[in-house]
Simulated scan of single mutants.
Amino acid sequence: MTFIRSILAATVLVSAHPANAQDGPAITDPPEAEAPKTSLVVLETTIGDITIALEMERAPITAANFLRYVEEGRFNGTVCYRAMHLEWGEPPNGLLQCGTQNDPKRILPPIAHEPTNETGLSHVNGALSMARFDPGTATGDFSIMIKDQVGLDAQPNAEDPGQRPGFAVFGRVVGGMDVVQEIHAAPVDPDKGEGWLKGQMLAKPVKIVKAYRAPPLD
């Protein structure tokens, strides 16, 4: 595409020259494709704000579900409670998990799974992904990637059937990634959590005071 645009730009310059004024109208670059539609949400935590762009067009089911939790106040008073730290790569590396913790008074019915091989999204640094058990069980818990975690993407050809659906990415952090990293760096309680979650639970979870929609960025 860059090569084609370079040719078009050169053609415009030649056509605009007085010696070529009779050669016909100048050729212009084709219009840029519009960016996929997003909606902005702010998570106001006790240590700072995190601004998120929800992928309303590319992951419509998952993004709309998250937005409903925001608009109905279901995230207000919840916490960021889990910090998974990976030992490989340059730290910080892992993910931060927040949300309703399956509170029956807060959660909505589970939503259909939107795999990354269909949405075109990926678990890159700052991406938001739904926490779940089996595909189609996600409700009101989500994770924020710290560094690329593309192993969580859908892998339709994986030998392990459990890896094939991956997890559903539905947004990305566009402001306050430093806040995400600060929460992720908070001490964990080695005795909290069960099974593989043990040692990943924050000793003092950080509260989401309020979640709300924000105006588009300039």
Rank of each mutant, 00 (worst) to 15 (best):
S39K: 05
G48P: 03
I47H: 00
M56V: 07
D23A: 15
T51V: 15
I61N: 01
P31F: 11
P31R: 05
I47A: 00
N65V: 11
S39D: 12
A35V: 09
T28P: 00
P25V: 02
E32G: 09
I52V: 15
V42C: 04
P31Y: 04
A63P: 01
T46K: 10
A63Y: 01
A33N: 03
P60K: 02
N65T: 13
T45C: 02
A63C: 01
G24L: 08
E55Y: 15
E44D: 14
T28H: 09
K37I: 12
L54C: 05
T28Q: 05
L54V: 13
D23K: 07
T45W: 03
A63F: 01
K37Q: 10
G48M: 02
P30S: 06
L43Q: 01
K37E: 13
G48I: 12
T62H: 13
E34R: 07
L54I: 10
E34M: 13
T62L: 10
N65Y: 12
E55P: 01
P60Q: 04
E55W: 05
K37D: 10
A59R: 03
T45I: 10
V42T: 15
I50P: 00
M56T: 13
T28R: 07
P31C: 03
D49V: 06
T46Q: 06
E32M: 07
A35Q: 06
A63V: 13
I27C: 04
T45Q: 05
T62E: 04
E57G: 08
L40K: 03
L43G: 03
F66S: 00
D23W: 09
A26Q: 10
I47C: 02
